[in-house]
Design a protein around this nucleic acid. Structure first.
Length: 208
DNA sequence: ATGACGATTTACT
DNA sequence: GTAAATCGTCATA
């Protein structure tokens, strides 16, 4: 099967189920040149929608910035933050429910050299380690070249980006662990809910 | 018009 | 460990 990718129905599920299910699957970015920048998803976070105080859509908040959270399952929600970073989510709520899964880290598998170029800063002398290439929500976007131009794109049809359906072999993964989400400050009980999912013992997971 | 802040990362002490 | 970087977005006026 060529260009196999997850379809609409694969994304239309609860955020918790999808967050766990995306672990081990490959995110593929196809450049204009045809080059592929790929990585295995090793860390995600579920954002549950209007009742989730840590979500951008908490309380039904709907603005130009987070409009794509209200889109159909399989759509990307890419936002800009801290004046310099982009982060990517996969929308999974049905019929206008602003629910999504944040992609927090990848284990890069293709196009590492290009990722290194994309991630390089002016100062740095030495090459960036493989484990620092995509180990964070903003890092992975920078590595594979995602910005606001990708906000709202359809992952089930866009030739530039999609997620492959076949999971990588279990042997290449690890045990799935959960923890509270990162960087959401004090959002009451929502700060401590275990909505972050990641492979234990994977060096590409952020923050360790 | 203004001000505070952010689902982060990097560099520096 | 702490702080700077850096600016679009949103709430308030």
């Amino acid at each position: 099967m060529v260009n196999a990718r997850l379809a609409h129905d694969d994304y239309a599920r609860g955020a918790v189920a999808l967050a766990r299910d995306l672990l081990g699957r490959r995110l593929v970015r196809v450049l204009e040149t045809g080059d592929r920048l790929c990585g295995i998803i090793v860390e995600t976070e579920a954002y549950l929608g209007v009742r989730d105080r840590a979500a951008h859509s908490f309380g039904g908040r709907r603005t130009p910035r987070n409009e794509s959270m209200y889109g159909p399952p399989g759509q990307a929600y890419v936002y800009f933050t801290y004046g310099m970073h982009h982060c990517m989510n996969v929308v999974c709520g049905r019929a206008g429910e602003p629910v999504a899964v944040l992609l927090r880290a990848l284990e890069p598998t293709e196009g590492l050299e290009r990722m290194r170029v994309n991630r390089a800063s002016a100062r740095r002398r030495s090459a960036i380690a493989d484990t620092d290439l995509c180990s964070g929500p903003a890092r992975l976007c920078q590595a594979i070249g995602l910005d606001r131009a990708f906000d709202g794109v359809d992952l089930t049809t866009d030739p530039r980006i999609f997620i492959e359906p076949s999971p990588t072999p279990a042997a290449a993964r690890g045990r799935v662990r959960r923890s509270p989400r990162v960087g959401i400050g004090s959002s009451g009980e929502w700060s401590s809910k275990p909505l972050r999912f990641f492979f234990d013992s994977n060096a590409h997971v952020s923050g360790k």
